[in-house]
Lab assay of single mutants.
Amino acid sequence: MDPFVVLVLCLSCLLLLSIWRQSSGRGKLPPGPTPLPVIGNILQIDIKDVSKSLTNLSKIYGPVFTLYFGLERMVVLHGYEVVKEALIDLGEEFSGRGHFPLAERANRGFGIVFSNGKRWKEIRRFSLMTLRNFGMGKRSIEDRVQEEARCLVEELRKTKASPCDPTFILGCAPCNVICSIIFQKRFDYKDQQFLNLMEKLNENIRIVSTPWIQICNNFPTIIDYFPGTHNKLLKNLAFMESDILEKVKEHQESMDINNPRDFIDCFLIKMEKEKQNQQSEFTIENLVITAADLLGAGTETTSTTLRYALLLLLKHPEVTAKVQEEIERVIGRNRSPCMQDRGHMPYTDAVVHEVQRYIDLIPTSLPHAVTCDVKFRNYLIPKGTTILTSLTSVLHDNKEFPNPEMFDPRHFLDEGGNFKKSNYFMPFSAGKRICVGEGLARMELFLFLTFILQNFNLKSLIDPKDLDTTPVVNGFASVPPFYQLCFIPV
């Protein structure tokens, strides 16, 4: 058959498939802009700032609406009420993970971030239990974070109060905490193996944040037939998995079943207990991918939040002064901060919360999916439909947070200066898919920041009023603009 005829037939089939998918069930789905064949609503979305586009569309179609990214149908949730109703009140029905062709290629359905069903539930339950087990290797997770915080302070001392970009050092600290939990080992910041790991993690975040990856996920045929950065992403992930597998083999040879040292040991012990169960989800494949998931999810998000926190503290020296006064009063100079201190430091706690609220790190979270046909607000959402959640619409709700575009710790303080919780605080998402490392991340943010401010004054290279804190939105995360500062020993 003539190649031209084959091409026309293929394009015609794709067009018909697109029209059929977009028209099927439209009477039951939430409203939304009319999609174009094949490309859907992509032309109506700013790929570099999806969150802003969703906010604009919500003003037209309401808090629940339908979009098509290519052939992929998505239902968008915008605003606290619908997000709570879906992710919390109907948590089980909305607990699936959205379709990610690239991740599915890399992870093969294993791990904790992109798995679904029984596998996801069992691996998540085990990971939560293990991360909360403060007795691994007779050292609590808090001990590990405190140790890394001391190392971080010593690295900052080496800058000798000269101007520096904190990106690298602030990236090393949370990565080392995860390494300590998974591998029972922290690395020197100049260790070549550690630097290679950091390089792969950072490069992957840069790649994932590009519009090209959005295109690959919406048109998965590209993955096999086109060159691009997605190939580098898959190569980096394969490198990390190979490295983790080597460490798993080392653990198998040296493990003491009665004295687990780290996450890998705990997983291997669980595998041993379930070795007679042919349906067990505790396999080497799941261990390797879960460890890679924890490394990827637990490094860049925390380091970016820390980097943004220091920029905001530079911009608002009056806030920094209040935090340091609270540190001096509650902790002093002669001991290290600990998590028990947080309950006695409402202002510092409010500042950490406000940093996370203000920066809105992951504006749309990772997409969910419905696990069955769901009736939601008089609409029928078919099983498997991807759910896109606007966390921006919750964290920047102007009824809950007056002047949401302003950095103001009073958003989390009552009139008496006591810490005030808010149900709208969802930087880790909400419901059954809430970030498994939430507790660890909150511990790291509090301890790293208090250790830094206990030991250093922060000095800006320019007038604080002239510092730009506008986030650089890159399609996946909101990151701070480049800046330098000086760490002046107190």
Rank of each mutant, 00 (worst) to 15 (best):
D2K: 10
V6F: 15
V6A: 11
L11F: 12
C13L: 11
I19V: 11
I19A: 14
Q22I: 12
S24T: 15
G25L: 06
P30W: 00
T34W: 13
P35L: 01
G40H: 01
L43T: 10
Q44R: 10
I45K: 03
S51Y: 05
K52M: 08
T55P: 04
S58A: 13
F65P: 02
F65E: 02
T66P: 02
Y68N: 13
M74L: 10
V75K: 00
E81D: 14
E81P: 10
V83H: 04
E85I: 04
D89F: 07
G91L: 01
R97K: 03
G98V: 08
H99I: 09
H99A: 11
A106R: 08
V113M: 14
E122N: 10
T130K: 14
R132I: 09
E142K: 04
D143C: 11
V145Y: 00
A149V: 03
A149Q: 00
R150T: 06
R150L: 09
L156Q: 01
R157K: 13
K158V: 07
S162R: 14
P163V: 09
I169Q: 09
C172N: 08
S180D: 12
R186G: 03
R186L: 01
Q193D: 11
Q193S: 14
K200L: 15
I205G: 12
V208N: 11
N217D: 06
N217G: 14
I223R: 08
Y225K: 11
P227T: 09
H230N: 05
L234C: 09
K235P: 04
M240P: 01
S242T: 11
D243I: 15
K247Y: 12
V248R: 02
N259C: 09
P260V: 07
F263Y: 13
I264G: 01
C266T: 10
L268D: 00
K270I: 07
K270E: 14
M271Y: 13
K275G: 10
Q278K: 12
F282N: 02
F282D: 02
E285M: 08
N286H: 08
D293H: 05
L294Y: 05
L295K: 01
T299I: 07
T301V: 14
L310M: 11
L312T: 05
V319Q: 05
T320N: 08
T320A: 11
A321P: 03
K322A: 08
R333L: 10
C338G: 10
C338D: 09
M339H: 09
R342A: 13
G343N: 12
G343P: 13
Y347I: 07
A350Q: 01
V352G: 02
Q356M: 13
T371K: 13
T371A: 07
Y379M: 08
L395Q: 03
N403D: 15
F407E: 00
P409T: 05
P409V: 08
F412S: 00
F412G: 00
E415N: 12
G416M: 14
G416Q: 13
K420E: 05
S429W: 01
S429D: 02
G431M: 02
C435W: 00
E438D: 10
R442G: 13
I452P: 03
I462P: 09
P481T: 09
L485P: 02
V490P: 08
